[in-house]
Amino acid sequence: MEALLYGWPWLALSAGAILVLVLGLAPRPAGAPPRLRDPKWLLQIGLPIYMLHQFEEHGRDVFGRPYPFHASFCGVLGHPDLATCPADPAFLFAVNVGAVWIAFITGALAGPRHAMVGATALGVPLVNAFMHIGPAVAKQAYNPGVLTSVLLLLPLALIGLRGLAGAGLLDRPRIAAVVAAGVALHAGLLVSLTAFERGLLSHPALLAVQVALGFVPLALGLVVGNARRA
């Protein structure tokens, strides 16, 4: 179990790199729009790009430090002693492999027909990028994940939203829903973590909540998408 909790970022790196190459180099069907304007392609590329970001956060950061985000996040929570930190490796695994991967996979599977599902998944990298970039700018200091937030996450979210909007699948109210989905997922994990620390949630329940949060973009995307069509 420990090998999985600490080794999954290497799986994310390998799978992410392979999928980026496949999606980036695969021949385009006749008559298909350019990749950056193709809703189907934009909804598929999200998870591989995010996986590369996850490696900088949880695999090796730019200084070569292993599993760097754990200590950084626990420090922000006021728990410099990792033994007392409520955000243990199982929690981080449930957030990243549970919530984040579920959000992107459901978005890719829903495809352009239910584009709001994939679009709301883009709220995750959009909000997460600012949660890395904001502190880095404010403190003038590096944090694990900020480099790929600037180079990958923020461009992913902005290009993805622009491409979906250009295809007529997004308007301003729907973009607001995308941001709301990203905020809701991040707020949910912090609220549940606080509840666990106060004894209001058991550890298994804490992990289950993180997995459930992965379906927030799916639910919100379906509700908003159906409402707008109606």
Rank of each mutant, 00 (worst) to 15 (best):
A115H: 10
A212V: 07
V100N: 04
C74N: 05
L147N: 13
L19C: 10
L122M: 05
P144Q: 03
A121T: 02
F215M: 05
L189C: 09
R35N: 05
A187H: 07
A17M: 08
L21P: 01
G24Y: 08
L23Q: 10
L13Q: 00
V179T: 14
L11A: 15
S202M: 04
T106Q: 11
G168N: 08
P135G: 11
V191E: 09
P68D: 06
G123W: 02
L122I: 05
A208C: 05
E2Y: 08
A87G: 01
C85P: 10
D81Y: 03
P34N: 09
V150I: 15
Y50W: 15
P68G: 05
L109G: 03
G160C: 10
G163A: 13
F73R: 03
A99T: 06
F73Q: 01
A94Q: 01
A108H: 07
G46A: 14
A26K: 13
P48T: 10
A165Y: 09
V223S: 12
M116V: 04
L126N: 04
L11Y: 12
R60Q: 14
N226T: 14
A3V: 13
P173V: 10
P80N: 02
I175Q: 15
L206T: 09
L151V: 14
A219F: 14
A184Y: 04
A219C: 13
V150N: 00
N96W: 00
P66V: 09
A17T: 14
D61M: 12
P89L: 09
L156W: 00
H79I: 02
G59Q: 03
L21W: 13
L82W: 06
L218A: 13
E2L: 10
L153M: 14
A90L: 09
G182T: 08
P204L: 04
A103D: 03
L151E: 03
A15C: 12
I159M: 11
A12P: 00
E2V: 06
L4K: 07
F55D: 01
L109W: 15
L154V: 03
F93T: 08
V95M: 09
R37D: 12
A187G: 11
P33M: 03
V223A: 15
V191M: 12
V62F: 10
H114P: 00
T106R: 08
G199S: 13
G64E: 10
V62M: 12
G134Q: 07
V178C: 12
F104L: 04
I102L: 15
N96A: 09
G46T: 07
H70P: 03
L200W: 13
L222Q: 03
A187V: 13
G78L: 06
V124E: 07
A3P: 04
A119W: 02
V211F: 12
A219E: 06
A129E: 00
A205Y: 08
A94N: 02
W10S: 11
L193H: 00
L77Y: 06
C74R: 05
V95R: 03
A17F: 06
K139V: 13
F73V: 02
A108R: 04
D61V: 06
G107T: 02
R198Q: 15
S202V: 02
G145E: 05
V183Y: 07
L21K: 02
D61W: 05
S192F: 07
L220F: 02
L222M: 10
A99E: 03
A138T: 11
R28C: 08
L4M: 12
V117I: 15
V137T: 12
F130V: 05
F55H: 01
A208G: 15
L122W: 00
L153G: 09
A119K: 01
V146S: 01
H203A: 13
